[in-house]
Amino acid sequence: MQKSLHIDPEKCTGCLQCEMACSYENEGIFNPSKSRIKVFTFHDEGRFVPYTCTQCDEAWCMQACPVDAIVLNFVTGAKDILNDRCVGCKVCTIACPFGTVNYNTATGKVIKCDLCGGDPKCAEACPTSAITYIDANATGLERMRMWAAKTDTQVSTHA
């Protein structure tokens, strides 16, 4: 059963444990600016919104990559970046309409969520279960996908 990240902003307290866990797991440092998950703060409403890649079906990043450096991980369903192929051209960072692929100036490559290979540290670190990693069809994945589909510019009537 494929799993996906389920994010419930209502439960988020803005503690940033997820950002710390993500940057430590993936970059080896506790530095929220290197995190692939980002908590946005809406001061006026007193709300926090954790946000990262939904591993969308359209895979705009993967389609746009000119050097075959973003591939589908058949086990996790994530779209993984292969660092040895990525040249750092950044086309994926403008192609992703969700803004979840970012350029890392320190490495000259792009970074995005890869679900930590199936064991996402953000979910593990979240003390309030605002981020959970659960069966894809039991989550808001459909809702997230619907939301993702709103950005599809194309009318498809596949034959």
Partner: peptide
Amino acid sequence: PTAVEHGFIAATNMSGGNYLHQGSINMNV
């Protein structure tokens, strides 16, 4: 990105599909 969209849509329509291009966003990095 536009070349990739075009390639996909043209091939779909060449092989019996009916995919209408909504237009590509001009963008660069």
